[in-house]
Simulated scan of single mutants.
Amino acid sequence: MYKRALLLAAIPAAVLLLSVASAIGGEGSGASVALTKKDGGSKIKVNSGSIIQIGLPENGSTGYAWYFDNLSVDYFEAVKDKTVTLLPDEKTVGAPAFATWVLMAKKKGKSELKLRYYRIWEGPQSAVDTFNVHVEIE
């Protein structure tokens, strides 16, 4: 049942990413790129002004959440972030969630987007998962 709920939840998560992209589509001069967990470790090229969306699963009821590891404000502007519960009944304790961030590539250069999954009170060194993408901005 849990796997089915996650499968059904993938649809709203994808819709959320697309709705965020369409809502801010006019802000950047470049295209929009959507990244998910499967894109971790990859390299991407975007134009200055492009929108980069990151969507990662998390379960805040366990205390774990994704946090940026030194987000370069020289290269990226944080436009929006949001976490949504993936089950229809948002009052379900322990329900999986989907965290999203929308960033704008600001200037030409190379940088890395890196996030760590940990409990805030245990600190980044206790991360149980990481997500990173090397970004070249043209």
Rank of each mutant, 00 (worst) to 15 (best):
I24C: 04
M104G: 11
N47S: 14
F98R: 07
I11R: 14
W66V: 10
G41C: 12
E112C: 00
G30M: 03
K91D: 10
L8N: 14
L16F: 13
G94V: 14
A10N: 08
P124F: 00
A10R: 11
P124K: 08
S48T: 14
G60L: 12
Q53K: 06
A31Q: 10
D74K: 11
P88Y: 14
R119H: 05
K3E: 12
E90V: 15
S19G: 00
A105G: 04
L71I: 12
V79C: 01
L113C: 08
R116V: 02
K45F: 06
E90R: 15
V84R: 08
Q53H: 08
L8H: 07
I52K: 08
W101L: 01
V102N: 05
Y64E: 03
P57G: 08
K108D: 13
E58S: 03
V15K: 12
R116Q: 15
N59M: 09
Q53V: 09
A9Q: 02
Y118M: 07
N47A: 14
V102S: 15
M104C: 09
Y64Q: 03
N70K: 14
L71Q: 03
A65P: 01
K110V: 13
L87H: 06
P12K: 02
Y75K: 11
V84P: 00
V46Q: 08
N47C: 00
S29W: 01
V20F: 04
G41V: 12
V73E: 12
I54V: 15
V128Q: 12
N59I: 09
V93G: 03
V20N: 10
A5G: 05
L87E: 10
G26E: 08
V133K: 13
E122F: 06
D89S: 07
K3Q: 11
K37M: 12
A99F: 07
F131V: 05
Y117K: 03
L16Q: 13
Y75E: 03
G55L: 14
D89W: 01
P88S: 11
N59G: 05
V79I: 15
T36K: 03
V135K: 05
I54G: 05
P96N: 14
Y117L: 04
G25Y: 15
N59C: 11
A95N: 05
T92I: 11
A14M: 07
A9T: 02
S72A: 15
Y2Q: 07
L7H: 04
G55P: 03
F68W: 13
Y2K: 12
V15D: 05
G30W: 04
V84E: 14
I52G: 10
V84K: 07
W101D: 06
D81H: 06
L35D: 01
I54F: 03
L18K: 13
E90S: 15
W101K: 12
A23P: 02
H134A: 14
P57V: 01
A34E: 04
S42R: 10
T62P: 02
D89C: 01
Q53F: 02
A34N: 05
T36S: 06
S42T: 09
V15I: 11
E122V: 05
